[in-house]
Every structure is written in C-alpha cells, then in structure tokens.
C-alpha cells in the first residue's frame, strides 16, 4: 500500500509552526517513514506547480498555518483544499487569527503609510508604495493584493480540524498525527486538544484564589514574580481560567502569565469576552467606582484579551469610519 501523502503550508505566519513540526525531533523520522511529504516550502524544494499537478484529494491531509490576508494566500489554500482529503488549521493564526490578527485594529492604509512613509528610518521622498503590478524594463512583475482585514482559515475555506496554540504543543501534534494515521479522529470541526481550562491542570492551582479578591492588577515588570504562587493571586493578568489546556503550562513554568494562545474551550463562542468576564469576576469589590479604578489598571484590554483571536471574535475587527472599517 502506498503511503499517505501530506502537505504543509504557511500563510500570514512567523514560521514557528514549522519549527514546532521540526521539534518532533527524532520522531519526525517515524513520520517520514509513515507518510510522503509532497509540499513543505520551509524544508523541501517542491513548488506550487508540483501541487497544481496533483489529483483532487491526492493529499490525505494538509496542515495550514498562518492567517489569511492576501490574494496569494487565499489562492494557495483554495488549491490545497482541492488537493486534500483532510485540511487542518494548524496553530493560533489559522485557528483564531493569531497575533497578526491584531492588524484588524487598524486598516490597510494606515499600516501602509506607517511602513513606507512614516517609519523613522524610511527614506521615500516621493512617498510611493509597492505595487501589485509593475512594468519593469524587462517585463511585468506582480505582487499579491493585500486585504484590509486579516481572516482565520475557516473564514475563507472549509476546515476539518484545528490544532491550537502558538505554536501547537509538540505532544498535541504527535497525538493528532497518530489519530490521523490510525483513522481515529473525532467529529469534524473538533479542536484536537484537551477540553479543560488551563487553571484546572496548572501546577500552581492550589494557590489560586477561589473567591473574588483582586484589589489591584500588576504589570509583570512592576513586581518580582514569585515562582510558586498562582500568578493571578499575585495580581498578574493570567488568562488560564479562560484558556484551553494542552500546553503543559509552558508560560507559567517560565514564571509568566498565560496570554491565551490555545484559545477557548468548546463551550465558548468569543474567547476575549470569556477571558474578560473571567478576570472581572475576580475583582474584590462591589463598589462601582472602586471596580472601575481596579479595572483601569488593565493597560490594554483589547490587546490583552483578544491577543490571538481578534479575527475570530464576534466583531472580527475595529470599526471606526476613519480606519476604513465596514
């Protein structure tokens, strides 16, 4: 029997998801023994035309990381959808929009102007931008069109499963590969990770406050962080109570708060709203003014609670007329 064929591709991403696959280390040799990888630009020399030549659904599974924000990325994921039996959104950016999704707080023009006209170091006296199509002396060269709004993968094509995390934890990648190869996958649309909140499995959970008692929020640079005690109890905005587990409490083990990259559990529609309410419910006051004063210490609510999920949120993006929102 021929081996199942597999593709990996990246869109608006950082390459961390590719590294996470390489972090399978010696086990990647087992993966390679079990499947044929037919597309993986970071590591293999197969080109777009090689993918175009494949039959429909010839790839048993494609793993796609990165958010979608350009015409080229859209074309590539449409192409891979056609060529793939299963398609997996791999990592926070394709799952929820990820950190590049914070660009949805602004519009394309303001970002463009920032980069090509206003940056401290740019010298562009005529103030022009890169072009989608340009006549050069030798012919015409083109660049992809960039969208005004960053999208999640399932906002542009049909997605079968999701591997959460920034990047997905190696253990979850291994389990997902095992389940795919064994044909033992859950219901379509599932997130391939434990469905418990991080706080429930956190090594510091014994010291988590049970009752609302937070009187002051601290920013991580303002205090010496205790290495044993619950971070929330120390006043830090740790989002473990709203966030799916499966990461091995990596950031907490690094003595820093959870920032929510694994996204919500299956019972939550909008991650940021859930995280905000989880934190607000721990504020130890019934006085409106006092509550407002305590919450005002949260320096950047949008960037904190929607750090990885703005495109997947109910609002998708900022809607200010001057920012070109619709």
């Amino acid at each position: 029997m021929s081996k199942p064929k597999v593709g990996f591709y990246w869109c608006a991403a950082c390459g961390g998801c590719e590294e996470a696959v390489v972090d399978l280390h010696e086990e990647i040799l087992n993966v390679v023994a079990a499947v044929d990888i037919l597309f993986w630009p970071v590591a293999l020399d197969f080109k777009r035309e090689d993918v175009e030549k494949l039959h429909e659904r010839e790839l048993a599974v494609s793993f796609i990381n990165g958010a979608i924000r350009s015409s080229e990325q859209f074309e590539m994921v449409e192409l891979l959808r056609k060529k793939s039996g299963l398609l997996i959104a791999f990592g926070s950016c394709s799952h929820l929009g990820g950190i590049p999704g914070l660009a949805n707080l602004f519009n394309r023009e303001s970002i463009l102007a920032n980069s090509y006209k206003e940056a401290f170091s740019v010298e562009n006296p005529q103030g022009f931008y890169p072009q989608e199509s340009i006549q050069v002396p030798e012919g015409k060269v083109t660049l992809p069109a960039l969208w005004n709004t960053v999208k999640t993968l399932d906002q542009v094509i049909d997605v079968d499963y999701y591997l959460p995390g920034c990047p997905p934890p190696v253990e979850l990648i291994k389990e997902a590969l095992g389940a795919i190869l064994a044909g033992k996958l859950p219901e379509k649309g599932a997130v391939l990770a434990p469905d418990k909140a991080l706080c429930e499995v956190c090594p510091r959970k014994e010291s988590k406050p049970e009752k609302p008692q937070l009187r002051e929020f601290k920013r991580p640079h303002e205090i010496v962080i205790d290495t044993e005690k619950c971070l929330l109890a120390q006043g830090l905005l740790c989002l473990g109570s709203a966030t799916r587990s499966g990461c091995g409490s990596a950031c907490v083990n690094g003595n820093m708060p959870c920032t929510g990259c694994m996204g919500p559990t299956s019972r939550v529609l909008d991650y940021g709203a859930k995280a905000l309410s989880a934190i607000a419910s721990l504020v130890g006051s019934n006085d409106e003014k006092e509550i407002a004063a305590i919450l005002s210490k949260i320096a950047d609510p949008t960037g904190t609670f929607y750090r990885y999920s703005l495109p997947a949120s109910l609002l998708h993006r900022a809607y200010k007329p001057e920012q070109g929102g619709k």
Binding site: R69, Q73, P100, L105, A119, E138
Partner: peptide
Amino acid sequence: RAYLQIPELRGFEKFAEGRP
C-alpha cells in the same frame, strides 16, 4: 534581470501602537 520578490507583510509596527 532576475527579481527576488517578497510577497507578504503583516504590520507589526502599526499594531504595536497601543500595546504595553
């Protein structure tokens, strides 16, 4: 002539604005 082209951008400097 051969052109090495970079077809993608993400906007970190802009969305850093407003973040702690």
